[in-house]
Amino acid sequence: MPTRLEKAIFTTHPPTYSLLNRLRDRSRRLYESAADKHQRERKTAEYLLLSLTNCGRTWLRVMLGRAMQLAYGIESVNLHDLFAFSERNPNLPSIKPMHEKYGQFGNTYQQHKVILLVRDPRDALVSRYYQHQKILPPDLNQYVLAGEDLSAYIQFYNDWQNYQDTTQAFLCVRYEDLKRDTLEELSRVVDFLELAIPPAILAEAIDFAAFNNMKKLEAEGSPDVRAGVLQGHRSPAQRKVRKGKVGGYREDLSAEAIDFLDRTISRELNPIYGYSH
């Protein structure tokens, strides 16, 4: 989280702050590993944006990054690296997006505000399979019926319903609601982050992160979205931006696998998410 001194320098003389920030970044690159950087950001972030894999986190990150870039005039920044925005402008919230199960870092969530992004586990599992099929069982239905990753999604969601009060503040966002009304849900996130971003800028950010443009960014690469997340060298079936469809799992799975997923979710997943029927 930015210090008062950093904010004061930025407010008094932005060029001086920018110079000091570049020197700090250069120094960190000399001694700080990727793991060290991750731990530092996770520990100091004001907000944690948490999800399991294949829940739309890349999409949300790009929308937020583009909105902050446009609203606050930040140039030459990796839109995907939300934490970097607070280092470029210390008046912006420090946001750490990550995959983290509850308790993975010793139940330290009382120090953070948490945005939990969830997606119907059935769609998330199918998306996960296609992206990582080289290391998963050779058959999609076999993978689903094994149930191991399904249990991980259910446990993750149930944990956060039980322990959300351990955070400073908590916001749950459903991928399906982002698809249904992207502007409304993105506005909820922006309000939670205490950012003042006009709806017109949010709409422009949404257009930038539209499905077809995200596919193009992944296929062709872009200086705006770096860090290897949208990896164009993958085959089309294995890319992160594949379908993005709500309920698309029914097009890919056998009747047996669908019935198994439906029954397990109805029996074990907290119904508050709306995925149990």
Rank of each mutant, 00 (worst) to 15 (best):
I115F: 01
S86F: 04
H132T: 14
P15H: 00
T166E: 01
Y275W: 08
E251N: 10
L195P: 01
F260C: 07
K7Q: 11
V126D: 09
K179H: 00
Q231P: 11
L217G: 09
T108M: 15
V229N: 14
L49Y: 04
K245E: 12
Y109F: 13
T53Q: 15
G65C: 06
L20G: 09
N78A: 11
A257N: 07
V118I: 01
Q131L: 13
G106Q: 07
I206K: 01
N107D: 12
R122N: 02
Y175P: 01
I265H: 02
Y47W: 05
S235V: 08
R122E: 00
W160A: 02
E6Y: 04
L70F: 09
N270F: 00
R29M: 08
Q238M: 09
A169P: 02
L19F: 10
Q164T: 04
G232E: 00
E46M: 09
A146P: 09
E87N: 14
H112N: 11
K245M: 11
H80A: 11
L261A: 05
R234T: 12
K43R: 12
Y249I: 05
Q155L: 14
A210D: 09
F208G: 06
G73H: 06
Y72H: 08
Y143V: 10
L5A: 13
V144K: 03
A67I: 07
N89H: 01
L82Q: 08
L52H: 13
K7F: 09
D149P: 12
N107T: 12
P223V: 07
Y31H: 00
K43T: 10
T167A: 01
K216G: 14
L70W: 09
V229F: 14
E32A: 10
R174C: 03
Q164F: 04
R234K: 15
P236V: 00
Y175S: 01
G232M: 06
I258R: 12
E87M: 13
S266V: 12
I258N: 12
